[in-house]
């Protein structure tokens, strides 16, 4: 009985030992490459909302300062968590030095295809261009200085707008402190 347990234990331990060693070797080879890939993906996402910058510096978790080639601050990038209709998703917003929005980008989300998923489209996203905190409010009628909700997807539209607004208010607080 005891002998059996020890035998089984050693058997399983040996398998795990070999497996663990192989995984350690795999990690040793791939880890630096993975980090590089992730860094590149992050940079591309930041660049997509703040084209004038060439590099980014983290000020605080989720808040980045965009610098140009000369090292001058050209704006900020914030990643904001939005509470959507079917779960949370990330929105990235590029902001210029006057705290006006340059561009926003909606990352992977599970909003209803054909309705809520329209928050990813240019028609909705372009409304944010040039807006400041005060204009970030969702209305249901055509508007020039506010954000018009997508028909049938008010919750998703509000989620994006609220998230960006919250991020922008927080950014202002951090910078002006």
């Amino acid at each position: 009985m005891i002998k059996d347990i020890i035998k089984i234990g050693i058997n399983l331990m040996l398998i795990c030992l070999v497996g663990g060693t192989i995984l350690a070797a795999t990690n040793f080879i791939t880890a630096p490459k993975i980090e590089e890939v992730e860094k590149e993906a992050k940079l591309q996402a930041q660049l997509s909302v703040l084209l004038s910058a060439t590099q980014f510096k983290e000020i605080k978790q989720g808040f980045f300062k965009g610098l140009n080639a000369k090292g001058e601050t050209v704006g900020y990038v914030i990643s904001c968590l939005a509470e959507g209709y079917s779960g949370a998703f990330w929105v990235m917003a590029g902001v210029n030095k006057e705290f006006k929005i340059v561009r926003i980008n909606v990352l992977t989300n599970k909003e209803t295809p054909g309705l809520g998923s329209k928050i990813e489209e240019d028609e909705f996203r372009n409304q944010f261009k040039g807006k400041c905190v005060e204009s970030l409010e969702v209305v249901k009628t055509p508007t020039a200085d506010k954000i018009q909700a997508i028909t049938g997807a008010t919750i998703s539209s509000k989620a994006v707008t609220e998230a960006v607004k919250k991020g922008l208010v927080e950014l202002k607080r951090i910078i002006q402190k």
Binding site: D4, N11, L12, I15, T26, T30, I34, V37
Partner: peptide, 30 residues
Amino acid sequence: IHPKIRIPAYLTIIAVLVTMVEAFLHAYVP
């Protein structure tokens, strides 16, 4: 492999292989 623990043993082997695949895909085919 001891017959009594063959299933955990198989799963460990499969898990090692899958983790390898995942790491290599992440690094080279993001």
